[in-house]
Write a protein that binds this DNA or RNA. Sequence first.
DNA 1: TTGTACGCGTTATCAT
DNA 2: ATGATAACGCGTACAA
Lengths: 367, 367
Amino acid sequence: MGRKRLQETGDGRPTVHTVAARAGVSIASASRVLNGVGGSPETIRKVRAAAAEVGYVPNAIARSLQSQRTDLIALAVEDIGNPVYVEMMRAIESVVAASGRQLLVHATGGQVANETALLRRLAHRYVDGMIVSPIRVTDDHLAALVDSPAPVVVVGQLGADAPVDNVRTDSRAGVGLAVDHLVAAGRQRIGFVNGPLDTVPGAARDAGFRAALAGHGIDLDERLVEVGDFQYVAGRAAAERLLARARPDALVCANDLIAVGALHALLAAGRRVPEDVALVGMDDTELARMMFPQLSSVSLGSAERGRRAAELLLQRIADPALPPRREQVAPHLAVRASSAAVPDVGPLFVPAPTDPAPAPRTPEVTA
Amino acid sequence: MGRKRLQETGDGRPTVHTVAARAGVSIASASRVLNGVGGSPETIRKVRAAAAEVGYVPNAIARSLQSQRTDLIALAVEDIGNPVYVEMMRAIESVVAASGRQLLVHATGGQVANETALLRRLAHRYVDGMIVSPIRVTDDHLAALVDSPAPVVVVGQLGADAPVDNVRTDSRAGVGLAVDHLVAAGRQRIGFVNGPLDTVPGAARDAGFRAALAGHGIDLDERLVEVGDFQYVAGRAAAERLLARARPDALVCANDLIAVGALHALLAAGRRVPEDVALVGMDDTELARMMFPQLSSVSLGSAERGRRAAELLLQRIADPALPPRREQVAPHLAVRASSAAVPDVGPLFVPAPTDPAPAPRTPEVTA
DNA sequence: TTGTACGCGTTATCAT
DNA sequence: ATGATAACGCGTACAA
């Protein structure tokens, strides 16, 4: 009958009550000691001993209910498998983990509906904040972003004056870098394989491509422009369509996945890279360095943007009254063998004959 | 003075009390309606209306404290950027999301200490369970796994009779598949670029390689074996060391990242693939299909293992009394151009002239 | 069906 | 410094 309160949790794990009872002090004292605030030396000793004996571990949920925070950060991206998001996620994870928090990942599939749903779920307060990198933005989506129930920072282009923390890059200018480079290398018929035009990055890159050509006084031949999506398969298909009807001497691709697809399309069509067709990708993921020939690529600083976004978010969580901030990461071009006569996959590492560690059973080898 | 209980949360969001008061019912009735259990038609109407008016959203923390579950699942892997874990993570995320839960990711860097720390943190009950894919296993690590404070399932090899749910593959046999294939293709001097021998996969693959050669009656030349780690850079360095001292006509690599490194080492050394040296990777990630030549690779079913692991975990959460289970995913070999005379990156897609959608502004093109 | 009251496990307040 | 007690927001016995 009515014993007012059990001292153990339902499945037998100790609580503060267990520790307090065992130490012969009140739960308040126990809690204080366990949190390192106050307590006489004797109390501290008794409580610590009791906690150790029963193997006490504080319950994160109860603590969260009290503290009104979960120390969880969410990240929502289109596809957690895309190398560009992988790099971003890595950077974010490291900042988040360093702050003692943990990272939650969501794959949205690029669907606006999924993202707004996620935004709404923030009201449940299961995370302290969210980083979202939307590729499509609608009006009510934007509205949901603006009056989000929890701190949000956006990675990517947003309406110019949306009052939301965001860190962006200038992918328009990024495409320009690629075009400038190709024109300077004497290429005349520069093609473009883009992702969907109804996405923010797709639209920006399309605009950037046209502007860049115009800047060089080049008339754009529309047959040199093709659209797929931001994946390898569709990118390759798009490149094949383009090659079936036009003869580019250079190809700019809206990301590295597309660029790999285009490379394969070119090779399958018997074109040499870069002799016949120069190729430039975008995002400068490690994939670009893994290709042969290695891919020139426009870095949009995805890791850097991720890092900055995480920092902005942590700052806002610490001080929700902060005004909306906007940071910008400049694009830059990495020139590699796919578009220029630079050393390709060369000997990065000279075998270190004096270093015995990695090569155990073969001391006589170097000869 | 003493108003017993506020009807709003500290920062002004509505709670059940707000809704109840507004609907003119008790919080119990409000809660019942909001959870869809009980309530007269009239009460239901009033409560729903009130909830809608104030924009009520239940607090996940409070709900968790009550229900003793968070609907969060954790995943701990060495490196969230490694394509093999990306594929696993994708598969897990999809199962987890389909069950209405969310996924938390941890990067352990392959450090045992980090993993045991993570295991201990489970006692905080911030997640309902965890999937962990350890590459190094020590005794106390195993002990921590066995009496984990929350359900855990392990992806990877574990001591034969450890009472822990786990889904494994036979990477020993997987290496055998690669060796069999190469021997059948007439290769004589088969080399092996492995990851660290103090890891579970590294040790298993080393054993598998030696056993396979022995099975074919081939004497292993130790100069044909090299060790780096499971990354591209070290893999490439290891391959370069190997090539500096030996003349393999085939190379088996312990994963695809290493295989890409080895491919580059071979190309830099002027060897043709597969003519001079046949190359087989492991894990069969999409990276293998993206290379040129496309890489043969031994699939260890990482996505499938992830999916199964997630399902095992959900089952155990539903019924903790289940006996420990062990599932096995068989390896299989994907033969591609890097090790055989099969069609390489060929025309996957015929341009669809009847499909106007992707090529907007160019009706006259096909001519 | 409805309302009262308690418990989930913790931290914070406020007397003492 | 310490202890009783009130939150945190929710679900649910139990009694009416």
